[in-house]
């Protein structure tokens, strides 16, 4: 046998030996070649322009972790992320529970939750609050009968879906109880419209506390830090929740190594780079926890019930604020 042939045989034998030992091995590194980039839908925060900068920092982190460019799709309304996910135009997104419920209704298990935030004290939810001006005669939900109410958006969990369901549970039919209802289009717009006297009350998300101890986060506080409103000019008269926190979801038809890596990299972030974690607006001491569809079961149920109720001939959808 010629020496070069001997060499070839030995090297091939050795290589086969290595492969044989790992019969289950298969190359999972080609997922990057298939994906080429990560398309990530996020909702721009109209109350916090710095959020765009924060998302870019987040994208840079995910890009470094994955070795792929990350393209951010910032949508100005709730429906943008929902449609981008449902149509498969993006690979992952951060959306509220109500948004995920809509996606679930459209494409089922083609989109699945990956992680949500668990706060330091263990809570994995936030609240929906009925907000009025300090000078308002409204002191409880019942006082709102016949008055004007501003919702945030049809796809908003805390600003539409959840409080309406809870009103019904408390014997109030939201489609007939109020004199007039409107969609403000966002949490900031809702607070601004309240400030300008367009509504008697609005429903917004609040967090960083609980009904017993009060809240420290919400659009009125974010706007207060920007000098747009005085948070002390408002008061909360009704609170429901907790509502499951917004969720990071992914398309399930993407390569599994991508899904595992994205979930792991995001979960490692508060431990690997706590400054960046705080920088993207996450509360100190919070962390990502894995969740699945069952965590959002109540929101999915409420969304289905709300749609069924509307299709059943209740009042037509509210108009935009005039």
């Amino acid at each position: 046998m010629r020496p070069w042939f001997t060499s070839l045989v030995l090297i091939c034998a050795a290589a086969l030996c290595g492969c044989g030992q790992h019969a289950v091995s298969r190359d999972s590194s080609d997922w990057r070649g298939k994906m080429k980039q990560i398309r990530f839908a996020v909702r721009g925060s109209e109350s916090d322009p710095a959020m765009a900068t924060r998302w870019k920092a987040y994208a840079a982190y995910l890009s470094k972790a994955s070795g792929l460019p990350v393209k951010l799709y910032e949508s100005s309304d709730y429906n943008g992320s929902i449609q981008a996910l449902s149509s498969g135009q993006v690979d992952m997104a951060q959306i509220a529970g109500g948004g995920y419920a809509n996606v679930d209704a459209q494409v089922g298990d083609k989109v699945a939750p990956m992680v949500t935030v668990r706060q330091a004290e263990g809570s994995m939810g936030y609240y929906s609050a009925l907000l009025v001006k300090q000078s308002s005669p409204v002191h409880k939900l019942a006082d709102m009968k016949g008055r004007t109410l501003g919702y945030v958006d049809f796809n908003s969990t805390s600003g539409y879906l959840y409080p309406r369901a809870k009103m019904r549970e408390q014997g109030i039919e939201p489609d007939t109880f109020f004199g007039k209802t409107s969609f403000a289009g966002g949490h900031t717009q809702a607070v601004m419209a309240l400030e300008n006297g367009q509504f008697d009350a609005t429903i917004i998300e609040v967090g960083g506390g609980d009904p017993e101890h009060g809240f420290t986060t919400g659009p009125q506080y974010t706007m207060g830090r920007r000098g747009l409103v005085d948070p002390k000019a408002f008061r909360i008269v009704w609170v429901v929740g907790p509502i499951p926190n917004a969720v990071m979801v992914t398309r399930t038809d993407r390569p599994q190594p991508f899904i595992d890596l994205a979930r792991g990299a995001m979960a490692a972030l508060p431990y690997d780079d706590p400054d960046l974690w705080r920088g993207i607006g996450q509360p100190d001491g919070s962390a990502f926890a894995a969740v699945d569809r069952s965590f959002y079961a109540e929101v999915i149920r409420l969304r289905a019930a709300d749609i069924a109720k509307r299709r059943g001939g209740a009042n037509s959808p509210p108009a935009k604020p005039s």
């Binding site: 899904i259 595992d260 890596l261 994205a262 926890a289 894995a290």
Partner: peptide, 16 residues
């Protein structure tokens, strides 16, 4: 990091 993040991602959701 690729392997570390994937290990974390796999273990994080393992209870589900």
């Amino acid at each position: 990091d690729d392997l570390r993040f994937r290990l974390i991602g796999i273990h994080l959701a393992m209870h589900l």
